[in-house]
Write a protein that binds this DNA or RNA. Sequence first.
DNA 1: GCAGAACGCTTGACAGTGTCAATATCCATA
DNA 2: TATGGATATTGACACTGTCAAGCGTTCTGC
Lengths: 202, 202
Amino acid sequence: MTTTKKPKHHHGNLREALIEAGFALMNEGGIDALTLRKCAARAGVSHAAPAHHFNGLISLKAAIIARGYLLFADEMRAAMAQAEPDPMAQLVAICQGYIAFARAHAVVFKFMFQPHDIDPARINKPVMEELARTSYSAFAILEQVCARFEPIPEANQGVEALIWSMVHGYAMLFCAPGADVPINPLPDFERLLSALNLAPRS
Amino acid sequence: MTTTKKPKHHHGNLREALIEAGFALMNEGGIDALTLRKCAARAGVSHAAPAHHFNGLISLKAAIIARGYLLFADEMRAAMAQAEPDPMAQLVAICQGYIAFARAHAVVFKFMFQPHDIDPARINKPVMEELARTSYSAFAILEQVCARFEPIPEANQGVEALIWSMVHGYAMLFCAPGADVPINPLPDFERLLSALNLAPRS
DNA sequence: GCAGAACGCTTGACAGTGTCAATATCCATA
DNA sequence: TATGGATATTGACACTGTCAAGCGTTCTGC
């Protein structure tokens, strides 16, 4: 925070501060804890200040989701960088990154895949574009690794859909804190993956 | 509605009417459209009436989720009843039921698997019990069918986790209206299932 | 038949929410 | 230095969940 000099007008980087505050609020207190007024208070501005950066709460939510996709992609890339370069190791790595993100930011993670009443027409264009860009960027990581495997014969080039469904379902169902999973013991995701008999492309 | 005789006090079945109203409101206008006051209005009672049936909004939400699990199980059972009795056909059937429910009640479906700040201590005990009962009942259907397959060698008895992850992820990612899926064409779930090479138990 | 308790619902109030309009302040540029 | 645009504040409004108090209905025991 650079509010050392002037404690009055002009926060300096309010937009960023609001996203960060909203992200934190959500992960701390659940979805309903995200409030424009609380974000504003946490950033040290008045309750109506956010309106100059996001046209409505829904717009701030969209920006938070975009931020989520950014961290999401980071997590997957970081896991890839530490893994062996062969296709299977890379695939396992991004799935572990996927799951790690779900565990670390469970509330935001689930919120990202909610049916938000996000009407593109009612949201700041920059926010909407950032959302489209970051979400696709995250998906592209998955897509890239899946392309290194032979397509599934029965469903041509269905590897992405298969892997994505599996890892997403696993993360959603079993990696949210407080989810009392009725399956015990829960197998590691890597073991489930091995049931697929995926073949690296020649 | 049985309000033909007495248009005044005593709704008769307000609890049920509130759940139904909430369910409808949610599916029509998204999650934020669910409001205690709107539910009350739709049921034709005053704004504070719901408090006598649910101790707080969160309790009504829990009841709606429980109702969701009920319909969810119904959908799966209905699909099973129409399918051949062999394990694979039954498995395909429940997955189709799973996906059909997700399509029909997308908002409620996703809400069911959200991290709700449902503190069991703050919710009516009957509601909490109904929630536990209905959710397990839905899972049991899946469990039963999965038990008819040979366990996955690498992850002992991981069939449930595998199937559940896959179908849940598929439903979440690809079956919500308005989800612009980056995978095109999207393979049928049945085809993805065939990539698993599951073996019916001998 | 009929008091009185138990239940179901209403009314009224309160703090908290998102959003808008009007105003004040800062900053850059001319 | 003056002008204007971006940024933030104040105040107001309707709407929300929740609570307390009270009223109307229905049921129970006698």
